[in-house]
Design a protein around this nucleic acid. Structure first.
Length: 788
DNA sequence: TTAGGCTTAG
């Protein structure tokens, strides 16, 4: 067998080996020596991850340290294993194991840093045999996570080698971090917001860490993938951040995830296994890391006061905010901005509590189980930003609700009775949020054990404070209006109180409000009339030219003749396209070169002289971007800014006539010289000295909340309808969607009573025509609910 | 870009 484990006494084994083979010391290993009857013996000082060489053969490298002669200059030798032997060894070899290698060949080492002039090579094909005397039996395979393990007593030579593969990280104590640097940090979590979808494109997690230096650092971490953010479950967890950027904000240093950011998270409890939580497949983890974590754990135990309150349902003391670890047994949609989670933690809530009635069709969960648990489950209503995550939770899974609010509320028709309600309010303040706990998490295992021990029969027979007959009532009966559907979702500022329109009408100061009202009327009726072009700089609005206007603009601009001598400029390759049967009309296409070469059409920017709208639209299906140009004096230049400066897809992009300062087309050449030019409209506009206009929906809503009516403007690029205004004029599906939404918000011939509610943010502001000031209102941070 | 800890108000 090419790989054998040595059982029993190593001395006995070695004696048996000496009958046929001769031991060779590391200092006698030389290229060209006859090793057929030799063996070497050493201790595994370090191992590297199993990898593959160019032809796909498996490759495994270890550093073998001469056990009996650790002071020798040639005390360590790199051993390279190939093929199946490499795979077999990689799965069993650990640092500290004693290894005997026979049937090896000796090659010249490729690096002086290897510490030995030679290296050993072994494989099944070469007839090699490796014997391993395990340092200890290891049941769990924690060490498979290790990219490289450095022995605590490695000699200098092998340490150098180890570090050249697995970088040695330096960790900055939190009191020594400086603005404008990128550092590696260790810290204990003092506060955290579980990952949530933020206003940008990513998920965000805000984490405050502390360490033995007593300094704290608030870190904002972003990632498009929720799972890539640190998996923190409670304060006191320990994090390791690599490549976090430090910058100053409001006079305070903060950390922010930058390119290459990576995190590991560990349970912060002394004595629990040191197992890193990460979604990354490859990371380093050394003995020093383990030591750092163990030291931090000890420090946490006596220095970090956990401000979060964790409670069982049996122990709550309302009103309070607390963290609840529980199992999800059912869930249901309530309306666009609220969602029901039915949960239990095996204990009984001692108060009369609120149960939410939902339509059977909207409910997901095992009704038989829920009936059996009826005296132990509680209904949690989650709002706003938490709805999306709540929807995605799996019934049966274990979850933690952070900063859950338990408070009493009396129904209007029963002022003498108060029921306990559980709300996970909107927003993320105080770390409000939900995490799904993974199977195997210690708290999940404990909860499972406890849930299995609960005697349901005993509970079912007992008198319950929340008998369904008298405790069930609908969302609506607790507070006027709260059950009625809102067709909008608030993207932020959920703590704002609702202001009546009558109050707003009587106020003259510019300020934001949260309102709840119905849409009586809106203008314009025709959707295409609502899309305008808006200059973010001078704020002017203008109409979007229609097809016939555009055609005319292009015809006028094409009146100048293409100049053949302006072709083939430094960054373009030009062709003349003779139009058939169209008299004198000639079209010149300039292909923008990248790195002296033409790109694939779908990545290419082209410029066109003398093309019609029809031709441009045809070409825009094939090329990344099209810039209409004309020849003027000695250079190519943009058309008059009445015409688009760019087509991308079938969308024309315009520049502001007032704010732009157009430059010669040659200004694009630095962009063309970039490694991978993306040809984004904003970068092209910037290079050409243009301020790009944005497409916006402009609508006027007449809102009514029963206390008054208010005209409110909507001016929005994409956030309100979740449909980009830039694409709506050229996309039938988007047009139909918006028409459907508007029809739901304000169906014609419907009484005000039957219209849906809109929760909105509006802000008041003044406009002046030079003589008179007028107060106006505008919608912001409001989105149409997904299910509308 | 986003958030920049510091409870909703249903």
């Amino acid at each position: 067998m090419p790989l054998e484990e040595i059982r029993g006494s190593f001395r006995v084994f070695e004696n048996s080996l000496r009958g046929s083979l001769q031991k060779v010391g590391f200092e006698h290993l030389q290229v060209g020596c006859d090793c057929a009857s030799k063996y070497v013996q050493g201790t595994v000082a370090a191992s590297y991850p199993l990898s593959k060489v160019g032809n796909g053969t498996s490759f495994f490298k270890i550093i073998l340290q001469e056990s009996e002669n650790p002071c020798s200059k040639a005390g360590a030798v790199n051993t390279y294993m190939f093929g199946k032997l490499a795979e077999d060894c990689a799965s069993v070899v650990h640092q500290g194991d004693i290894m005997v290698v026979a049937g090896f060949s000796v090659s010249k080492s490729t690096s002086e840093a290897d510490g030995h002039c030679c290296r050993l090579e072994v494989s099944d094909e070469a007839g090699s045999t490796i014997y391993i005397k395990m340092k200890r039996k290891i049941k769990s395979r924690e060490s498979t996570h290790q990219v490289c393990t450095r022995s605590s007593n490695t000699i200098t030579g092998s340490e150098t080698v180890a570090m050249s593969v697995a970088p040695s990280y330096t960790y900055t104590p939190l009191n020594l971090v400086k603005g404008g640097t990128i550092v590696n940090l260790y810290g204990a979590v003092k506060f955290f917001k579980p990952p949530y979808k933020c206003k940008g494109t990513d998920y965000c997690s805000v984490i405050t860490i502390v360490d033995q230096s007593d300094a704290k650092l608030i870190c904002s971490l972003f990632n498009v993938n929720r799972d890539a953010l640190p998996q923190i479950y409670k304060n006191g967890d320990i994090v390791r951040f690599h490549r976090i950027k430090i910058k100053e904000f409001s006079g305070q240093l903060q950390g922010i995830s930058s390119s290459g950011f990576a995190a590991l998270t560990f349970d912060g409890t002394v004595g629990t296994p040191v197992v890193p939580r990460t979604s990354s497949k490859l990371f380093t983890f050394t003995d020093e890391d383990r030591k750092t974590i163990e030291d931090l754990r000890i420090w946490v135990a006596s220095n970090l006061l956990n401000s979060a309150v964790a409670a069982k349902l049996s122990g709550i003391q309302p009103p309070m905010y607390f963290d609840l670890t529980c199992q999800l047994v059912g869930k249901a949609k309530l309306d666009g901005s609220s969602y029901l989670l039915k949960v239990w933690d095996g204990t009984k809530c001692p108060f009369l509590y609120w149960k939410v009635v939902v339509r059977e069709d909207d409910f997901e969960g095992d009704s038989v189980l829920i009936h059996r648990l009826r005296n132990l489950t509680v209904d949690v209503v989650v709002y706003d930003n938490h709805v999306q995550l709540a929807k995605s939770l799996k019934v049966g899974s274990f979850i933690r609700l952070y900063s859950l609010h338990a408070k009493f509320q009396s129904p209007e028709d029963e002022p003498d009775v108060s029921y306990l309600q559980f709300h996970l309010h909107g927003g993320t303040t105080y770390g409000r949020g939900i995490t799904s706990l993974p199977e195997g998490h210690a708290d999940v295992e404990d909860l499972k054990k406890f849930l299995n021990s609960v005697d349901l029969m005993e509970d079912e027979s007992s008198e319950s404070p929340s008998e369904p007959e008298n405790a069930y009532f609908t969302l609506g009966s607790c507070s006027e209006g709260c059950q009625q559907l809102s067709v909008t979702v608030l993207r932020d500022h959920q703590h704002f109180e609702v202001t009546a329109l009558s109050t707003i009408l009587n106020s003259r100061s510019p300020q934001p409000y949260r309102i709840r009202a119905k849409l009586r009327q809106f203008e314009p009726e025709k959707l295409h009339q609502s899309v305008k072009l808006h200059c973010p700089q001078c704020k002017l609005l203008q109409e979007v030219p229609d097809g016939s206007e555009l055609d005319l603009i292009l015809q006028e601009a094409s009146a100048t003749c293409p100049r053949p001598d302006l072709q083939n400029t430094s960054f373009c390759e030009s062709v003349v396209w003779d139009t058939e049967n169209q008299g004198q009309r000639r079209v010149v296409i300039h292909f923008v070169k990248h790195d002296e070469l033409l790109q694939d059409p779908e990545d290419s920017l082209i410029m066109i002289e003398g093309g019609t709208l029809e031709e441009i639209l045809k070409l825009s299906k094939k090329f990344k971007g099209i810039i209409p140009v004309r020849a003027m004096e000695d250079d190519l230049e943009l058309l008059d800014l009445s015409a688009p400066f760019l087509w991308q897809g079938n969308i024309p992009h315009y520049g502001c006539k007032h704010c732009s300062n157009p430059k010669a087309i040659a200004s694009l050449s630095p962009l063309a010289a970039q490694k991978d030019p993306l040809w984004e409209p904003t970068t092209i506009a910037q290079a050409l000295g243009l301020v790009p206009l944005e497409y916006v929906f402009v609508m006027k809503f007449m809102l009514d909340d029963g206390t008054g009516t208010l005209n409110v403007y909507l001016m929005d690029c994409k956030d309100f309808f979740q449909i980009p205004a830039s694409e709506v004029l050229t996309n039938n599906i988007f047009q139909e969607n918006i028409e459907r939404i508007m029809n739901k918000l304000c169906p014609s011939g419907t009484n005000l009573d039957d219209l849906p509610w809109l929760d909105c943010f509006i802000k008041s502001y003044y406009v002046t025509d030079g003589r008179e000031q007028q107060i106006c209102y505008r919608v912001f941070d409001t989105t149409i609910a997904e299910d509308v």
